Structure formats: structure tokens, C-alpha cells
Computed example of a mutant assay.
Amino acid sequence: MAAKNGFVQGYASSQIDERVEIIFKNFENFIDLVDMFEDNICDQITEEKRFNRRAEIGECGVRVQTSRKSDPTFSQASNHYDNIIDIRRGDLDKLLEYTDDAEGHRDEIETLELMRRDYTTVTSAMSVLSPKDRNELKDVLNKEKAIVDIIESTGNLYESVKSRLYRNRRKVKIQAKELIELRMGKAA
């Protein structure tokens, strides 16, 4: 939980340049991380709601199933799916009803949505590069190739490959920053 809060809260408090660097650093699994944090918050919300509803009606915490009609596994999966749908639609009022920290959850969910939008913006910003340079940069960011692999395939010197990757990364960062600022309504 602390790692999640640190990563998501750190992202939320970062400036645009820093957010783009976080995306670059975690490029190969950035969306997987966002999905993981989203799943975690959905589970947390489900548990809080379940506990608070039971406490509200005075249940002591021990439940015995006697009807044989419920399917707890299906119910849990259905609740999780419904929570994901509510998050993606932005229907947070209903989702956060009966939770302990509605505002904290809302902030985290909004940050996760911001992370998704920023990632999409960074990948879109790569269009400023030629297809060859774009693929080369994506391969390095996805850790599919190292600089040594690029040197071997292109025959270029280490310094020229390193400089080209740095320039291309900088171009993408500048373009992504401009696009994010436009999306946020800030003047560049």
C-alpha cells in the first residue's frame, strides 16, 4: 500500500516534465502499473463498502450462509467489474458512497486517469519522430533493445547512438509537454 501511495501521490504532485520522465522510466509497464493500482483501489473500495454496510446494520462480523443461493465469487467479480466501469465513466459519487475516505479515493482515481491520459499523450507525441527513430526509441524505452543492440544493427558509434536517443527523447518530451499544457488549458 505504501509503495502504491508513494508512486501515485508522487505522480500527482509532479510537474509536467517530471511526469513525462516518470512515464519514460516506467514506459514498458506503465499502463500495467496503472491497472494494478486501479484494481487495488477497486478492491479497497469494495471491502470498505462491505464492512461499512455490515456495521451500519449491526452485523457482528460472522456470516453463515444457509440459503445456498449466493455465489460469493461471482458477486466479488461482478462488484469489481462494476467498480472499474464506474471509474472509467467517472461515476464516482455512487462508487464512493459508504467508503471511509471518499475524497482520498477520488483524488487517487483522478490521478490514475491523469496517468492514463499522460501516457497516451506521450505515445502520441512520438509522432514528431521519423518511424525509424520512433521505433528505436520505443525499443529502448520498452527495454527490448539496449544501446549495444542498436550499435550492432546500425553500425553507428556509441556516442552517436546515445546522442540520437537523447535528442529524440527530448523532442518527445517537449512535444508531450506542449500537448499536456494544451489539454490542461495552459499557455505554452
Rank of each mutant, 00 (worst) to 15 (best):
T66N: 06
R68S: 10
E47Y: 15
L92T: 03
Q76E: 14
V62S: 02
P72M: 05
D71L: 11
T46Q: 15
G61R: 14
A77D: 14
S70H: 09
Q44P: 04
I84M: 14
R50E: 15
L96C: 04
R53P: 01
Q76L: 12
L96K: 02
R88Y: 05
R89P: 01
D39Q: 10
R53K: 13
G90H: 04
T66C: 00
S78C: 06
F74R: 10
E56L: 12
I85E: 02
D91R: 15
P72D: 02
Y81D: 00
G90T: 03
S70E: 09
Y98F: 11
A77Y: 12
I87T: 02
Q65W: 08
R88Q: 15
T73P: 00
G61N: 00
Q65P: 01
L96E: 00
T99G: 00
R63D: 05
S78Q: 13
N83S: 09
E47Q: 14
T46C: 14
C42W: 06
E97Y: 04
E97A: 08
I41K: 00
E47L: 13
A77R: 12
Y98W: 06
D93C: 05
I45H: 06
E47T: 12
K49W: 04
A55W: 11
E56D: 05
Q44C: 12
N79M: 12
A55V: 08
D91W: 03
E56N: 11
G58T: 01
N83R: 06
E59K: 12
I85V: 11
A55T: 11
K94C: 01
E97D: 08
C60N: 11
G90K: 07
Y81A: 10
H80L: 04
Q65N: 12
R88F: 08
T73F: 06
N83P: 02
R63H: 11
D39K: 12
V64C: 09
Y81P: 00
E47N: 15
D39T: 08
G90R: 05
S70N: 03
R53S: 05
T73Q: 04
I57N: 08
N40D: 13
V62C: 00
R50T: 15
R54E: 07
T46V: 14
Q44F: 14
I41E: 10
A77K: 13
I84V: 07
R50Y: 15
F74N: 02
D86F: 09
G58S: 03
E48F: 08
Q65A: 12
D71A: 09
L96F: 08
E48V: 13
I87D: 02
N83C: 15
Q65D: 10
K49M: 12
C60W: 14
Q44E: 15
I57P: 02
C60Q: 05
L92F: 06
L92V: 00
I41M: 13
Y81Q: 06
L95S: 03
T73R: 12
G61T: 10
R63P: 00
Q65S: 12
R89K: 15
R88P: 02
E59A: 11
I85L: 11
L92M: 09
H80D: 08
